[in-house]
Design a protein around this nucleic acid. Structure first.
Length: 508
RNA sequence: CGGGGCGUAGCGCAGCCUGGUAGCGCACCUGCCUUGGGCGCAGGGGGUCGGGCGUUCAAAUCGCCCCGCCCCGACCA
C-alpha cells in the first residue's frame, strides 16, 4: 500500500473546535454518550457522527443534514484524492445546471422510470407557474447528453472525459446521515467514446480508481463486481460497483461505474462521424462516489469510544496535549509543546480551563489518529508520550525521535486499520450452495443488531432470482470481477449453470 | 408512504394521567481551587414548553389539525 502523503501540510484546515458536550464519567450521567455497537449498531453510528462533530440533522429541512467542519474536512481530503486521480487520467472538471427540464428525464425510458418517484420538481419561479417544470437533478446524464450532442460531431471530438463535483437531490423515504440523505454531495463523471470497447475500458479504469482510493486511502477493503440487471443503474447497459462490508456485516455500495452503451446517445441524438464517414451514436459512461463514503468510513473503523480516522484522511493527524500544575511548569511545558509540535506537525491543544483528561476524550471522539502527551515528568526525562487512537496503546518515546516515531505510528495505523477491516471481511464471508442455506445465514441480520455476512453463492443474473432474495431482504451485491472461489456451479434458484459465485448480503 | 416513539434552556431529561408561580443534571458566566483519562466549592445568567386552532376563569398539561426528528417496514447512492 502506498503510505506516503502523511504530513499534515495543507490538509490541516481545522481550527480549535467548540468543546463538545462530555458526560461519560460524570456523576449524574449513568449512560455513556456513545451507544455500544453490540447494543444497537444504528444508534451507535448516529452517536459517533454526532459526537465526532461530523454532521447533524438539518432538522428544519426534511431528510437533509448539515455537514460540519470536521466532516467536511474529511470530504475535502477525499475529493482531493479522487480529483488528483481523475486529472491524471485526463478528465476535466465542468459544471452543469442544477435544474433540468422535466422533459429531459423522460427521453430515456428506463431512466425516467427509475428516477420519477424520487424527483423534486420546481413548478413555480419568479412568482409564475413555469411552462415546463424543472427537476432538481438526481443525476445529470440527461442534461449532459443534451450538451454532448452539441459538442460532438466527429470521431476527432472523442473521447469526451468530464467530471463534475456537485450536489444532487433524491426524495428518499428514509434517510440516515451520510448514508442516505435527500440532498448529497458527489462527483459524477461522464464520458463519451467512439467504441464500446473504449467505453468499457473507461468504466473499469474508474472502478479501479474507486477501489484503490477506498483501500489505500480510506483503508476500506472492497469487492469489485458487476451489478445484476435488477440492481443496475436505470438506463445503463451494465453497472459495476465496489462493495464494502460494515462492522455489522451489512454491505455498502461505495461507488458505481456505469456502461451506458448507446442508450443516452440515442435518447439525446449524440452522433458522430466515424473514420469510415458513417454516422454512429457515441458510447457513454458515467460514474460516481458520494458523501456516503464518509458513512462507510465511519462504519468500517470507528469504535465504542467514537470516530477512528485513517491517518491519510484525518484532517488533524496528531494533537499534543500539554500537562502542567504550577505556573512555572506551565510556561516550560507550553514552550516545549509548541517547539515539538512545530517540529512534528502536530496541533497543540492549549485551551485554558480544560483538564488534560477532558482533552484526551475530546480528540478521541473526533478520531485523531495520534495524541501526544507532554508533562513535567516528560520534560525531566526528555520523553513524550505517544498514544494511538486505533489500538489505545501508549508509549513514551525520546523527544529526539518523536518525529520519526509519529510518522511510523501514523503509517502503521493506516496499514493495520486496513488489515483489520480485511480480516473482518474475510471472517464474515461464507459459502452457500442452496437457497435455504443463504436464507438461514442472512435471515436474522439487521442494521441494528448486526449479524450480517457476505454469502458467496451461485445465482443467475435474472430479476426473478433477485426477487426471491428480496423476500428475505437480501440482495445480490455484485458478481465479483475476479472469482476467488470454485468457478462455475448451479444457480441456487433455477439450477442453471452460472460462471461463478456472487456476493449476496443485506445492504444499506 | 404505513406502523411505533419523541418534540419542555445549548445537551440529556422530569413535569402532562388528575389544568393553577417553569423544574433537575450537565454545559455556560464570575470567583477561588485544580490539571498524567471527563476536578471541586460558592454564586449567577439563560425558556414565545415544535407550530396553529379550540375547550376553560386559567393550558406544557385536555381536544383537533399541521410540522419536524428517531426507530421499524415497503422504495433507493
Amino acid at each position: 500500500m502506498d503510505s506516503g502523503n502523511l504530513d499534515q501540510g495543507s490538509l490541516e484546515r481545522a481550527r480549535l473546535p467548540p468543546s463538545v458536550v462530555s458526560w461519560r464519567f460524570t456523576r449524574h450521567m449513568a449512560e455513556s454518550p456513545i451507544t455500544a455497537r453490540s447494543q444497537d449498531f444504528a444508534t451507535w453510528y448516529q452517536d459517533v457522527v454526532l459526537q465526532g462533530d461530523m454532521a447533524e440533522p438539518a432538522e428544519i429541512v426534511k431528510g437533509c443534514m448539515v455537514i460540519k467542519a470536521n466532516g467536511y474536512a474529511v470530504w475535502e481530503v477525499m475529493q482531493r484524492e479522487f480529483d488528483d486521480r481523475f486529472k491524471r487520467t485526463n478528465h476535466q472538471n465542468v459544471y452543469f445546471p442544477l435544474l433540468i427540464p422535466q422533459s429531459f428525464l423522460k427521453k430515456e425510458a428506463e431512466h425516467v422510470e427509475g428516477f420519477s418517484p424520487e424527483l423534486a420538481v420546481v413548478t413555480i419561479a419568479g412568482g409564475k407557474e413555469l411552462e415546463e417544470p424543472y427537476v432538481i437533478r438526481p443525476t445529470s446524464e440527461t442534461i449532459i447528453g443534451h450538451f454532448f450532442a452539441k459538442w460532438i460531431q466527429s470521431w476527432r471530438d472523442l473521447p469526451v472525459l468530464v467530471n463534475q463535483w456537485a450536489n444532487v437531490v433524491r426524495w428518499e423515504l428514509r434517510t440516515r446521515m451520510f448514508l442516505r440523505t435527500t440532498e448529497f454531495l458527489w462527483q459524477e463523471g461522464h464520458t463519451a467514446h467512439s467504441t464500446h470497447e473504449e467505453a468499457l475500458e473507461e468504466v473499469l479504469r474508474i472502478l479501479d480508481i474507486y477501489a484503490e482510493v477506498a483501500e489505500s486511502v480510506m483503508a476500506m477493503p472492497v469487492i469489485k463486481g458487476v451489478k445484476t440487471r435488477a440492481e443496475k443503474f436505470a438506463g445503463a447497459l451494465k453497472s459495476y460497483s465496489i462493495e464494502a462490508m460494515m462492522q455489522n456485516g451489512l454491505a455498502l455500495q461505495a461507488g458505481t461505474s456505469h456502461d451506458l452503451g448507446q442508450n443516452f446517445g440515442k435518447a439525446f441524438d449524440v452522433q458522430f462521424q466515424n473514420k469510415e464517414g458513417q454516422l454512429d451514436y457515441v458510447w457513454q459512461t458515467s460514474w460516481g462516489v458520494s458523501t456516503r463514503l464518509i458513512g462507510g468510513l465511519i462504519m468500517t473503523h470507528s469504535d465504542d469510544k467514537g470516530l477512528v480516522l485513517p491517518p491519510r484522511l484525518a484532517p488533524v493527524k496528531s494533537v499534543l496535549v500539554p500537562i502542567y500544575r504550577k505556573d512555572e511548569e506551565k510556561s516550560a511545558v507550553l514552550e516545549a509543546a509548541h517547539r515539538i509540535a512545530a517540529e512534528v506537525g502536530a496541533k497543540v491543544d492549549d485551551r485554558e480551563g480544560q483538564t488534560p483528561g477532558a482533552k484526551f476524550f475530546h480528540w478521541e471522539r473526533r478520531g485523531v489518529p495520534v495524541v501526544l502527551e507532554l508533562g513535567p515528568r516528560d520534560l525531566a526525562s526528555g520523553k513524550i508520550v505517544l498514544k494511538r487512537r486505533d489500538t489505545g496503546a501508549k508509549e513514551p518515546v525520546e523527544q529526539s525521535v518523536v518525529k520519526e516515531k509519529l510518522a511510523a505510528a501514523l503509517e502503521d495505523t493506516q496499514t493495520s486499520l486496513f488489515a483489520r477491516a480485511k480480516d473482518r471481511l474475510k471472517a464474515n464471508t461464507v459459502l452457500a450452495n442452496s437457497l435455504e442455506e443463504v436464507q438461514s445465514i442472512l435471515k436474522d441480520a439487521t442494521a441494528e443488531k448486526g449479524g450480517g455476512k457476505f454469502v458467496m453463492a451461485h445465482i443467475k443474473d435474472d430479476p426473478d432470482c433477485d426477487a426471491v432474495l428480496k423476500e428475505f431482504k437480501a440482495t445480490v451485491r455484485n458478481i465479483p470481477l475476479v472469482d476467488e472461489y470454485d468457478g462455475p456451479g448451479k444457480c441456487i434458484i433455477t439450477g442453471e449453470t452460472v460462471d461463478h459465485r456472487a456476493v449476496i448480503a443485506k445492504a444499506y
